[in-house]
Write a protein that binds this DNA or RNA. Structure first.
Length: 198
DNA sequence: GTTAAGATCTGCT
DNA sequence: GCAGATCTTAACG
């Protein structure tokens, strides 16, 4: 298994959001390795997207969003939680993909410890704040290059060609709610919301 | 300096 | 299904 080719994280956020599904997110700390498969993402565009942090220009918080594709954009929200994004656009563009949920694969015990031993394994990582807790991701990793340790993307060379991807409205935003920029692996048991019938 | 809102989660009903 | 916790950020004065 190799590191994810950098070009997969480069391009229009909608396309990258779709492409990242099924690949792996890995996190190494001195406590060990944690690994999960990406099952849910959201695209945040730079233009005509009021929900995107970059839509009102560069600030100290969002400046990595305007940086190089393949870097991590991490921000703190609601007084308690971090959200993890992959920057996708060329320098100056301001687009990114929010990783909302992964399926836990390795380091389950470490995730349980960090998450306070939830009853169900899917509660380890089925939400942007939860997966950051399980993966020990915080602002110190903002701007980190995702093709090297200790936080990196790895290729899944055996993604099922028949994997069904669905696009739905994004979650938790109050503007631009009609755009279908949330992408999920249909049928996954590790999504942040139960798949609705559409 | 002050204030209001936020790409969420948890626990309770 | 819904309200409360919690505090950083950015917009405004």
């Amino acid at each position: 298994m190799r590191y994810l080719r950098k070009k997969i994280t480069t391009g229009k956020a909608e396309n990258v959001a779709r492409s990242l599904l099924g690949h792996y997110l890995c996190r190494k700390t001195e406590d060990g390795l944690v690994k999960g498969m990406i099952v849910e993402t959201e695209a945040y565009l730079s233009k005509n997207d009021q929900a995107c942090h970059a839509s009102r220009g560069k600030t100290r918080r969002n400046e990595t969003m305007f940086g190089e594709a393949g870097k991590a954009y991490i921000y703190f929200i609601y007084g308690n939680y971090y959200c993890f994004n992959v920057v996708t656009g060329p320098i100056g563009q301001g687009e990114a993909v929010l990783v909302r949920a992964v399926e836990p694969l390795e380091g389950l015990d470490l995730m349980r410890e960090r998450r306070g031993y939830p009853e169900l394994d899917r509660d380890l990582t089925n939400g942007p704040g939860k997966l950051c807790q399980a993966f020990a991701i915080d602002r110190t990793l903002d701007g980190h290059e995702l093709w090297q340790e200790p936080l990196y993307l790895k290729e899944n060379s055996s993604i099922n060609e028949k994997t069904e991807v669905k696009a739905t409205p994004r979650i938790g935003i109050s503007v631009a709610t009609s755009k279908k920029l949330r992408y999920i692996i249909s049928g996954s048991n590790y999504l942040s919301r139960r798949e609705s019938l559409e």
